[in-house]
Design a binder for these strands. Structure first.
Lengths: 200, 200
DNA sequence: AGGATTATAGACCAATCGGTTCCTAACAGT
DNA sequence: ACTGTTAGGAACCGATTGGTCTATAATCCT
């Protein structure tokens, strides 16, 4: 290593993440990226190689900064009861709107729609992140299950459905759905999670 | 009207819809559009005016061809019991994969993520279509509610949550989620719809 | 101090973008 | 048959796209 890098690559990637989060992949041009990341063309290409690599770095950073902490919070028994942890998780989409008027949705969900279909690298990461979240949900639900004596199959069903509701909420928020609708869905699903499944 | 149009505009729009459905708005270039719609540049611009108008026409066609029939099927008492209609509706995401390996998801949901945030014309249409689907779900649920004596608030909560699950399913499908996971979510949510809500 | 190495900045690139223009072809109305 | 009007096709447009290259500056190592 001769001349050291003058910018913090993590900071730059974080800025790229913000850009890609709001717009999609194609919406953000290289010029947007250079301005937003406060980098010159040469620096960006030396550091990342190509636009696609910046995108993947941003996705990986989202994993590290958002997805993994979210999954960890869901799994953390010290953070409250299973139901409390699930409530916090499910309220995140509404909370983003409520506290910050943030309607960007979830970068992971956006990427799933935007790029996962056409880009294998993105798909791989998206599926892995979804699985991580599902795993966190499952652990939180396991706590609830212990109180009710639910069989593992019930936990599995509820965990996967909760993931779907979460994704749906994030997309509906991005689409501009009214906050009270988002709140209603959040509360309603949380209720079904605490209910005892009925034998049919 | 002097010289009549040589192509069927509805067919052309349908081809545009297919293109935009698979890729996003930005992913589909004008060249892609011309080839896919089998039109020359002159014809396209005479008929639509600009790329954005083709996109909106495609969205509107999706509304006509998919969303409205879906909402109508949910509302149609002759099509089966409320629960049967809901089951058909909720199974659509899984059925697309099962019968046609179709992982494009739902054009409406894709558009919600892709363009609704940045384009008001798209957002307006997306929100309206979501409301139409929610309305159809509500009507189907009203049938179920009648059998159980649910209050309107319960129907509302379940209708909105069902919309969220539907959107989540479509996105998960597009992301490449395994079919059995999709099936599990579909079945699980359907179960909660038929359950009697428990007083807490 | 000096040579090797690497970051930065900006000029530069072909290709592609969405869109316009213009000319000709084809029809409607009289 | 003639005229007015519109569709179709292709040439053409400037702007922007992602990406490369070169010259210079800054640092490390000996």
């Amino acid at each position: 290593m001769a001349r050291p890098r003058e910018f913090d690559m993590d900071e730059a990637t974080e800025r790229a993440m913000a850009l890609f989060w709001s717009g999609g992949y194609e919406d953000v041009s290289l010029a947007d990226l250079l301005e937003g990341m406060q980098l010159s063309r040469g620096s960006l290409y030396k550091a990342y190689g190509e636009k696609h690599a910046v995108w993947l770095a941003a996705l990986d950073l989202y994993d590290h900064r958002v997805v993994q902490p979210t999954a960890a919070a869901l799994s953390d028994v010290a953070a409250g009861s299973g139901l409390v942890r699930l409530a916090r998780f499910l309220d995140a989409p509404a909370a983003a709107v409520r506290t910050g008027d943030d309607r960007r949705g979830c970068f992971l969900c956006n990427a799933a729609v935007d790029r996962a279909a056409s880009d294998g690298d993105t798909r791989e990461r998206v599926l892995s992140m979804f699985l991580n979240i599902e795993h966190g949900i499952r652990l939180a639900l396991a706590d609830v299950a212990a109180d009710h004596g639910w069989p593992p199959a019930v936990v599995d069903k509820k965990a996967k459905t909760t993931l779907a509701v979460y994704v749906g909420l994030r997309v509906l928020v991005r689409a501009g759905t009214a906050l009270d609708t988002i709140d209603t869905i959040t509360a309603a699903h949380l209720e079904t999670l605490s209910e005892i499944p009925q034998p049919s």
